[in-house]
């Protein structure tokens, strides 16, 4: 089962880069012409929108705030100290590690591009995986972007479901993982099958790698969460709205 999947995947990898190179130019033109209308909301809408469409359904707010509090403590007392310690590793190495982990996410992005019919981006993701895994030294360098400006695009199964009209359900805060909703939370399960790490190593190492990925990412982060907590009147509301806005925008594009 595993090997046949890999075979199909590799075959697709070989075919698509050729196709995508031709489609690349056309798609870029389209993206540029579409820019005006997509990002241009009416000022009136911007300022006085009823926001009924932007309303966030959060029936479990009490519970979610509890989980938010728990995650907050985990961040400040566990993840952040580890990340601070990890900063002894030189920044270029940590950046390389972040790219390596990100390269391992290419299959998730590629498959979800395919599922949404974004064949051009599917080609780009697979090209990126092949180029960065080889030329980019197992993903340590983003050679595809550096030499050919082939950029990634975040796609996941939650967005795929959204693309096909599946609603968000309601807002949930998942322990340790943070802001999510029913749809995107459940979509993590199928996505996990496209994650190569569990296929390559046993589950304990996979878990350790995931933890390492998070610590490495936080070590590179510029205290985003700290500043939200410091600057916002209600960090829970800020985080909730930021998550929802970001996800809704990602589903549309």
């Amino acid at each position: 089962m595993k090997s046949s999947l890999v075979c199909v995947f590799l075959l697709l990898c070989l075919v698509t880069p050729v196709v995508s190179a031709e489609m690349l130019d056309g798609a870029q033109e389209l993206a540029q012409s579409g820019f005006v209308d997509e990002s241009y909301d009416d000022l009136y809408d911007d300022l006085y929108a009823d926001d009924e469409a932007a309303e966030i359904y959060d029936p479990l707010e009490g519970l979610n705030r509890g989980t938010f509090w728990f995650n907050d403590k985990c961040y400040f007392y566990l993840v952040k100290p580890l990340a601070r310690g990890f900063r002894v590793v030189p920044t270029p190495v940590r950046k390389g590690l972040a790219k390596m982990f990100d390269n391992l996410n290419s299959p998730i992005r590629a498959i979800n591009c395919l599922l949404q019919g974004q064949f051009c981006q599917f080609g780009k993701e697979t090209t990126r995986l092949v180029v960065n895994s080889t030329l980019g030294v197992v993903g340590f360098f983003d050679a595809a972007d550096h030499f050919w400006q082939i950029k990634k695009k975040d796609e996941d199964f939650g967005q795929t479901l959204g693309y096909y009209g599946v609603g968000e359900g309601f807002y949930v805060v998942i322990p340790l993982l943070g802001a999510s909703n029913i749809r995107d939370g459940l979509a993590l399960v199928p996505d996990s099958y496209a994650d190569p790490i569990p296929w390559l190593v046993d589950s304990k190492i996979a878990l350790a790698l995931t933890a390492g990925k998070v610590v490495n990412r936080v070590s590179l982060d510029k205290d985003t969460y700290e500043s939200i907590v410091a600057e916002q009147l209600d960090p829970y509301l800020f985080t909730r709205d930021a998550y929802v806005q970001n996800r809704r925008a990602k589903v549309i594009d």
């Binding site: 000022l43 911007d46 709205d241 930021a242 806005q245 970001n246 925008a249």
Partner: peptide, 22 residues
């Protein structure tokens, strides 16, 4: 400038959502 959008998140919309709740 009347709005800053960082990673697809509009600051003004975000404030509006938070302040509306408060």
């Amino acid at each position: 400038v009347y709005d800053v959008v960082i990673e697809k998140v509009s600051l003004i919309r975000n404030y509006r959502s938070s302040y509306k709740n408060i």
